[in-house]
Design a binder for these strands. Structure first.
Lengths: 330, 330
DNA sequence: GTGAAAGCGCTAACAA
DNA sequence: TTGTTAGCGCTTTCAC
């Protein structure tokens, strides 16, 4: 593989000049530039990124930590981030943490020593103290769906609570008169917020009772069993708000298997807006702007990396109701 | 951040000794080792991977090229690969190619200059000539679901054709008497093979006719429209084999919306074995050993990287029939 | 405009 | 067993 030295020799200039040419900083005469270009072409020379990084430049690599790429929310996020990173000439290292604190720590350590330029974290086990090593090195971090009151970290979240309210309001509007809720892990902030939204909109109504809330875990299977249980306690429920789409899909399955017609007998709405287009009926949902979240995360991270923006403003994104067949009034 | 120099000074030994200690090669006296360990602890020292890489060692990074992480097959594969890589102390760079030749080329170039130790490609646009730059650098490549007759590349595939036959045999066994097929992109080898399997098992039967094959694109929507079309030509079909699960899900949806009961009126089977547990009825499928594929890919790659195995044996993995509700009799 | 030279942090001969 | 030292390929002062 050709090195900068080879180029400089063949072009009859010093490596410094070639370097300047490559990085488009400092002065390089037109002639010199042209011969260098030719030689580079001829030798099919490409700068060695590792050497570049060592010499003090950036690695042009970021880390992306997600709980589990198998959960369909995260591929969407990952894809948006990867696309944006790609536009910046950056490359993404994927880390699955399973929300396991130890794994998260280990990955942070690994990424740190691979000298990534920044990290996007969308994993829920993270606590501020885990990030201290990053802050020491002043490696920028973007947090998705998780908030710390910390200086060197910017958080991107969505209106989870408002989304929960919206979901209930929508079901009421569509004629539901007894709405149950399948909530997600209580350890996850955004999950708790969605449930808070449900409670805001339900508490005080004449039908509300705490046993209308089923506790689950953001999985299809969890949604399925929670639904069966809710159905056994409240056979007359006619609306379900699940805190994510996967559980909503599980609930739908349970309802169908219990002989309930959706949306006629029971209406169902989820949260997230992942594309579960294969469901029949298709699921209504409170959609997060996933792609926008991903792109913004990468844009903000680049801002921090390039130190263009010192201002670390957390952002809250709006959610939107997407009404599909599962909440239709026929 | 502490460097090896800091450690060597504080421990009163040379950097070489520290390096030997770190890499567990060469001799280091017990005492020296102990003090070094202490100092490392005290300084919270971690070797700089970039410097290590530059000094000739490996980058402990591999590239993973997939068409699109949004397609649920690839997160499963990616997860298995990432887990295995993690066990080896390796890190994975994710690249979405959209099966676009230009993107693939660009990523190969990028990965090359990031000095990855190896690449796993599960993207279909790749052609042998794209890999020449990698071979020049003798960077090992594992190909999943794609075969070249090339020396420095090992291919991992599954019994696609046999799977197609199995699917038809299963449907016949379950009483189907007119089976249609939704095939995937003809540009993809494995897709063509599955269709060949369908044809092997169908051609020669009294019900077979070429118009029972619908052409589609591996997406839910594609499966949906293909199904509607097939249904309009052959309203009496009673079995469907789709070349992947996504299309099978789309077909199921189309059937249900057309008032057909699955599995009573029409039985459906897909291919891949991605977990679409939210479907009602759940889909039968010809499952690939996705996790095993991923793990084997990483294991083989490590073998090549460590030059343990010079023998580049392509492997063909078996598929297994997973019968679920969608092909149940009565 | 350009070049010489000093690193970046680490590994790996080679000597001792 | 250990230390010295020459790189790995590139960037970046600082003179010229």
């Amino acid at each position: 593989m050709a090195t900068i030295k080879d180029v400089s020799k063949l072009a009859g200039v010093s490596v410094a000049t070639v370097s300047r040419y490559l990085n488009k900083n400092g002065y390089v005469s037109k002639e010199a530039g042209e011969t260098i270009a030719e030689v580079i072409e001829k030798l099919n020379y490409r700068p060695n990124n590792i050497a570049r990084s060592l010499a003090g430049m950036k690695t042009a690599t970021i880390g992306l930590m997600v709980p589990d790429i198998l959960n369909p929310f995260f591929p969407e996020l990952a894809r948006a981030i990867e696309d944006a990173a790609n536009d910046y000439g950056y490359t993404v290292m994927l880390c699955n943490t399973d929300n396991d604190s130890a794994k998260e720590q280990k990955y942070i350590d690994t990424l740190l020593h691979k000298q990534v330029d920044g990290i996007i974290i969308s994993s829920y086990g993270i606590k501020p103290e885990h990030l201290s090593s990053l802050q020491k090195q002043s490696i920028p971090v973007i947090l998705i769906d998780n908030v710390f009151s910390s200086d060197s970290v910017v958080s991107l979240t969505v209106e989870n609570e408002r989304g929960g309210e919206l979901a209930v309001e929508h079901l009421l509007e569509r004629g539901c008169s007894k709405i149950a809720h399948i909530c997600g892990p209580l350890s996850i902030t955004s999950s708790r917020e969605r449930t808070a939204g449900f409670e805001n909109a339900s508490r005080g109504t004449d039908w509300f009772t705490p046993s209308l809330i089923g506790y689950s875990d953001f999985t299809v299977h969890g949604g399925y069993t929670a639904m069966l249980e809710l159905l056994s306690i409240h056979p007359d429920l006619d609306g379900i708000f699940a805190s994510n789409d996967l559980m909503a899909a599980g609930a739908l399955k349970a309802l169908q298997e219990s002989g309930k017609n959706v949306p006629r007998d029971v209406k169902v709405i989820g949260f997230d807006g992942i594309g579960l287009e294969m469901m029949t009926p298709e699921l209504s949902t409170i959609a997060q702007p996933i792609s926008e979240l991903g792109k913004t995360a990468m844009d903000s991270l680049m801002g921090l990396i390039r130190k263009e923006s010192d201002i670390l403003t957390d952002q809250v994104f709006p959610v939107t109701l997407i009404a599909k067949q599962s909440t239709m009034t026929n």
